[in-house]
Design a protein around this nucleic acid. Structure first.
Lengths: 252, 252
DNA sequence: CTTCAAAAACTGGTCAGACCAGTGGTCTTC
DNA sequence: GAAGACCACTGGTCTGACCAGTTTTTGAAG
């Protein structure tokens, strides 16, 4: 194995085992090179590897520091290579929405088809609560409404996958989607879409429910796309979970 | 921002957008350095960053290659608490297939719409190999064919989710689906479905490709459902990965 | 002609030393 | 005491060389 990799592993283990605390400074490249008896290039390559893995952060003129591990991330989990791939790539958000469009549609279809009396009751309750409440605090309510529908599909796999996708969105989208709802015209459209979706599911019209659900996701997606053009920084490397959670105000 | 980071970002994006396919070789460090007008050291640092993220793999004397987007263990499935719920519940298999039907359809749709020349070439190659080979050893070939299509969708999220679903199937289904293919009538149907799917994708007919792909999954699903009625133990608690891998003979 | 081993031409891995570019402290100078 | 020049750090980039695997080419032996 390459020396640079051995070093990157050694440093990583050192950090993970607590030998180096978050925010703590790592010895300078020249020091490490001397102390480990290798060239500076090798050290730099090892550090870049750790940087790619998100273990350290490097600042020109200052040094390299152990990255502060965000606690929230570990629960939602997925520090897999793929997640690193996704982070910070705006396109990923739309890839996510593309898949969600399909699955939310399917969920609505199945819900309209399979919802029991209990399901209908829960969906209705969630919907009423959503309508009767201050739009600014809609985050959880919106999610609750959609979740009720997904669960009414009676397909645990679907529930699971959609939940995972939602988590991935939380990791991808930063804040500011809050700007989406405030715009009155959009809010009205979204409210109408919710109502249509609700009615189609309760009325037991699968094809219709699917159509509406897909249109809903697509609408949100396009709204985001527009925002990206105009406003600029819609998407960012997620910093903390709280900020990321703001996303749901966009209602999806 | 450092040049090395810009380059790693550019390369990463290139890969995500499908400009570089999995397993494909990346230009040599010296070539990249010349073409991008920077020193080789910078290129190496950028590559190490991607390596840390698991985006590429580098082999001494050979070169660097785009990592297959499907690392052995994926996140949506696996050790999540939900998996325990799923294990051993026959219904889960059909829930899985229900979701897959939708997503494979979407993948085919997008592939027919977005496939580049390179994609078409890879799909064609996989398809030809699949047709020209002993049906009894079709496991990987079948998977390869479908994977090529999914990857041609140029939606990493879709690739990721479908791979996860596949892994969950491996955990759910035991062997014995091998019984599916041997039945001549079914094999013929499946072969025909593959051909239809292939032609629709290559011809660039999204709607058609989607229809065929969905029908394909549904057919397999129903075949399994029938087998369950007759044959008996189609589904089992998974024991080991090798045995589970046999599943693909069912062709999906 | 074919065969097969040596050589050449790739690939990534490492090294050395130089210089540029931010950062922060020190030490004059006003 | 404050302002600015200076200096000693830090990481960032460049160059050109050499080592070490891998693949291709080549050329002589059969």
């Amino acid at each position: 194995m390459a020396i640079s990799q051995e070093i990157s592993y050694r440093l990583e283990r050192l950090i993970l085992d607590g030998g180096l605390a978050p925010e703590q400074k790592i010895p300078s490249e020249r020091q490490l090179a001397t102390r480990l008896g290798v060239s500076r290039a090798v050290i730099r390559e090892a550090l870049h590897e750790l940087q790619g893995r998100g273990v350290i952060e490097t600042r020109h003129g200052k040094g390299s520091f152990v990255a502060s591990m965000v606690p929230g991330a570990s629960e939602i989990g997925e520090q897999s290579p793929l997640m690193h791939l996704f982070e910070g790539h705006p396109r990923t958000l739309f890839d996510l929405l593309e898949v969600r469009e399909q699955l939310e549609g399917q969920a609505a279809y199945l819900a309209a088809q399979r919802a029991t009396r209990l399901d209908r009751h829960r969906i209705t309750k969630a919907f009423r609560t959503l309508e009767d409440t201050d739009p600014l605090s809609n985050a959880r309510l919106d999610h609750g409404f959609h979740l009720a529908i997904v669960e009414a599909s009676h397909n645990p796999v679907l529930v699971h996958v959609l939940n995972s996708l939602k988590n991935m969105m939380l990791l991808t989208v930063q804040a500011s989607v809050a700007n989406l709802n405030p715009r009155e015209e959009m809010r009205k459209k979204i409210v109408r879409q919710h109502r249509q979706l609700y009615e189609a599911v309760i009325a037991g019209k699968p094809a219709n429910a699917q159509k509406v659900a897909m249109a809903h996701v697509r609408f949100v997606s396009e709204a985001m796309r527009d925002m990206e053009k105009d406003g600029g920084t819609l998407i960012r490397l997620p910093v903390n979970q709280d900020a990321a959670n703001e996303y749901s105000r966009a209602s999806t």
